[in-house]
Design a protein around this nucleic acid. Structure first.
Lengths: 339, 339
DNA sequence: CACTGGCACTCTGCTGTCGGGAGTGCTAGA
DNA sequence: TCTAGCACTCCCGACAGCAGAGTGCCAGTG
């Protein structure tokens, strides 16, 4: 009973603080939520919550605000993911349905997430490592220069320019192209490297220089995975972080410029199919200590291809944000799964 | 004589204001720059400059700050582009030399510009319209689905997925691929459309449906030019816009999210080979009225391929920024010219 | 005629003071 | 276990006073 109400109080504090952005006091609390008790009682509960580290007061005799630990409890036990309205679902669908190529899908997703959550959206491009080789193309640019193009099953195109020491006759080019495709098409990217190991042996000694150059470029494209790209949107929403934000916003902007940081932000999860919320200091990156990240993987039923999420102030609407992120991830997963 | 000194005063005001970010008064002026006259004299000049609209005071009895018109005069007549130090030149070169593909070049350029100028950098991808077709590739994705890939002389790759009503036999695919390449390779993108006009006539009636679908996708890629992409960097530098910037920064962030706005920002110029400075209200976009844009085209000697530039507060170091932008444009031009 | 020095004036911005208000913790009582 | 009351703390806005910076103007000088 007592425990139960304490949790109710914490939930009420989080909800009020999220909507008003101001420390919430005992009196306002009983007025807005109809807990059947008096402010004084609430005060006792609040004192207890403060002792346990779930809330804090900015200064003596101000209202309370939730701590990271408080938000954590709220997310884990006090709230449920808010499903989207039918109108919103419809909007998602029509927004994403017009997409043509992969870039377009990712770009639209980012916009959509940013609009829906009114926060900063981050979408990772579908990872190469999970996809398979669709086609390898060699294009002569000059007599001693080749463009190696790798097309994957997710529609992604990787390109590399290779400088070859010698002239490359068309016949060799055709043969090499055929062999490359025969060896790798349909194979998963990480496995494709292995399929190519014995390829040089099928060519004559003086051809091998060329073959080796092309192979090394292709292998580079295949393992590119680790420097996956991400797309970013909704940075204008940073302006709603709060009025105290000259200090707050700068480190955040800096973090957003670093692809590596963004990837780590999305990445550090165990099971990508489960919605993940990282709150304030739980974020390894300093400068994002008053920032929360909500992320989840997306992809076909069988596999997660990449992750997406949003980033906002710790004082965000968690149920709504989580609902939006999850819904968008599902739709996008369906779309890239089909493609 | 009098006119000359008035201009000196304006220059001094601009320089001081840019470095201090505070309204500059007559006394400080004579101290910092050794104009050989007394503050009282300067005050007369300042009054005149104010009448003519070159400077203004935020409130009675504060120092003066330059107006947009003042900056304009400063840029046009009172300053010269500041050449970079040898160290900076070296940094540019080594920074850009490691670049592999086009994406990489653009990404590095953006970072470089942002670091050098400590402002927001914008780089347009080399325009398709000036480049030529290097290769067209058709890749079957499924029995009724084709990937059309266009590779340009600047190393850019455009891709489109086409849904074909019917099965596409390999023979037709090969024939079509050959014909497409024969007709367009080496041709400028805007002209290539014309070369393809008669292509359908060489195929039988039932093949034409397929040919038409592929063609329309290819034509789309060819004229894609108008929605050229841009890359953005250094947004963290927005935090240095000033302490008054919650109002200032939000519209700017919004503008930066819109590709179209960015393109127009770079685009609206007569001769792209000449360094262009657009100051405050000269910028057509509202929300960027306290923002200046320094931009210039880049490319080979013969042609400009695209533009790049930076965006910052009107109170920016114009000579330094202009020098950096020009220098970077030259190096990048050299690199994409070679590629 | 152009420059200078001096003077009165006008702002801003900082400091300190002072209630009002909101919120708390504690204690006594139901 | 909850409630009511009370004294206390602290923030915040208003107000006044003051120093400083800067201006405009005017009379004087080479």
């Amino acid at each position: 009973m007592l425990e139960d109400r304490k949790l109710d109080v914490l939930r009420a504090i989080v909800e009020d603080y999220v909507s008003t952005h101001e420390p919430v006091g005992s009196k306002a609390l009983v007025e807005r939520h109809n807990l059947g008790v008096s402010p004084a009682t609430i005060r006792n509960d609040m004192a207890a919550l403060e002792d346990e580290g779930y809330i804090a007061q900015p200064h003596t005799s101000a209202g309370r605000i939730p701590t990271d630990k408080g938000y954590r409890l709220f997310v884990d036990r006090l709230s449920s993911v808010k499903p989207l309205s039918p109108a919103e679902r419809k909007a998602i669908q029509s927004f994403l349905d017009g997409a043509m190529d992969l870039d377009d899908i990712v770009a639209r997703t980012v916009r959509l997430l940013a609009q829906l959550t009114r926060q900063v959206a981050v979408v990772q491009y579908p990872s190469l490592s999970r996809s398979t080789v669709r086609h390898v193309e060699l294009v002569p640019l000059a007599t001693t220069r080749l463009l190696v193009v790798l097309i994957t099953s997710t529609g992604r195109v990787e390109q590399r320019v290779v400088e070859i020491g010698a002239d490359v006759p068309d016949s060799l080019l055709g043969e090499l192209r055929a062999q490359l495709n025969a060896a790798t098409v349909g194979v998963r990217l990480p496995d494709a490297a292995g399929m190519l190991a014995e390829l040089p042996e099928r060519f004559t000694a003086d051809q091998r220089i060329t073959v080796a150059s092309v192979l090394s470029a292709l292998l580079e494209s295949l393992v590119e995975e680790h420097e996956d790209r991400v797309m970013l949107g909704g940075t204008a929403n940073l302006a709603r972080f709060g009025p105290d934000f000259p200090q707050t916003i700068h480190p955040v902007l800096e973090a957003l410029e670093e692809q590596m940081v963004l990837l780590r932000l999305l990445g550090e999860s165990t099971d990508p199919s489960v919605l993940q919320v990282r709150i304030g200091h739980e974020n390894s990156h300093e400068g994002l200590t008053s920032t929360s990240v909500v992320s989840v993987g997306y992809g076909s039923e069988s596999e997660m291809l990449a992750k997406l999420g949003v980033l906002g102030p710790t004082r965000m609407d968690y149920p709504g944000t989580m609902g939006a992120v999850r819904a968008v991830a599902r739709y996008v997963g369906k779309i890239v799964g089909e493609a």
